Simulated scan of single mutants.
Amino acid sequence: MLRYIGLRAVMALAVAFAVSLAAFFLLNLATDPAHAIAGEDATQEVVEAIRARYGLDQPLPVRYFEWLAGVLRGDFGESYYWHKPVAELVASRAGVTLALAFSALAVTIAIAIPLGALAALNPNSWIDRFALGVAVSAQAVPNFWLGLIMIIIFAVTIPLFPVSGDDSWRHFVLPAIVLGASSVPAVMRLTRTGLLDVMSADYIRTARSKGYRGWSLLYRHALRNALLPVISVLAVQLGQKFGGSVITESIFAINGLGRLALESILGADIPTVQMLIFIFAIVFVAMNLLADILNAALDPRIRIG
Rank of each mutant, 00 (worst) to 15 (best):
Ile151Arg: 05
Ala119Phe: 08
Ala34Arg: 07
Arg213Trp: 06
Gly6Lys: 09
Arg73Lys: 12
Phe130Ile: 00
Asp292Ile: 00
Leu294Lys: 11
Ala12Lys: 02
Arg303Ile: 00
Val178Leu: 02
Leu148Lys: 10
Pro33Leu: 13
Ala131Asp: 04
Phe25Ala: 12
Ile158Pro: 01
Ala181Phe: 08
Phe24Trp: 15
Ile177Asn: 03
Arg259Glu: 04
Asp166Lys: 08
Ile304Asp: 12
Arg205Phe: 07
Pro85Cys: 08
Leu276Asp: 14
Trp82Phe: 08
Gln274Val: 12
Leu290Asn: 07
Ile277Thr: 07
Ala119Glu: 00
Arg63Gly: 14
Leu290Gln: 12
Leu196Glu: 05
Val173Ser: 10
Asp128Ile: 04
Ile153His: 03
Thr272Trp: 07
Val90Ile: 15
Phe76Cys: 02
Ala297Glu: 05
Phe17Ser: 13
Arg303His: 07
Met188Ser: 15
Ser264Cys: 06
Ser245Gln: 09
Ala23Thr: 14
Ile158Thr: 13
Asp75Met: 00
Phe24Met: 09
Pro114Glu: 01
Arg205His: 07
Leu195Ile: 05
Ser79Cys: 10
Ile254Asn: 12
Gly258Trp: 03
Ile231Lys: 07
Leu234Ser: 03
Ala91Arg: 03
Leu13Phe: 13
Arg73Ala: 12
Ala286Asn: 03
Thr97Val: 06
Ile149Val: 14
Val96Gln: 03
Tyr4Ile: 01
Met1Asn: 09
Leu100Arg: 06
Ala9Ile: 11
Ser232Pro: 02
Arg208Tyr: 00
Val230Thr: 11
Val134Gly: 14
Ala49Val: 06
Ile279Leu: 11
Phe278Met: 10
Ala52Asn: 11
Arg53Ala: 10
Val62Thr: 13
Trp82Gln: 11
Ala101Tyr: 02
Val285Tyr: 03
Ile293Leu: 11
Ser92Ala: 15
Ala268Gly: 04
Leu266Cys: 05
Phe144Asp: 10
Leu298Gln: 14
Phe102His: 05
Val46Thr: 06
Leu217Arg: 01
Val163Lys: 02
Ala16Cys: 11
Ser216Arg: 15
Ala52Ser: 03
Ala131Phe: 12
Pro162Ser: 05
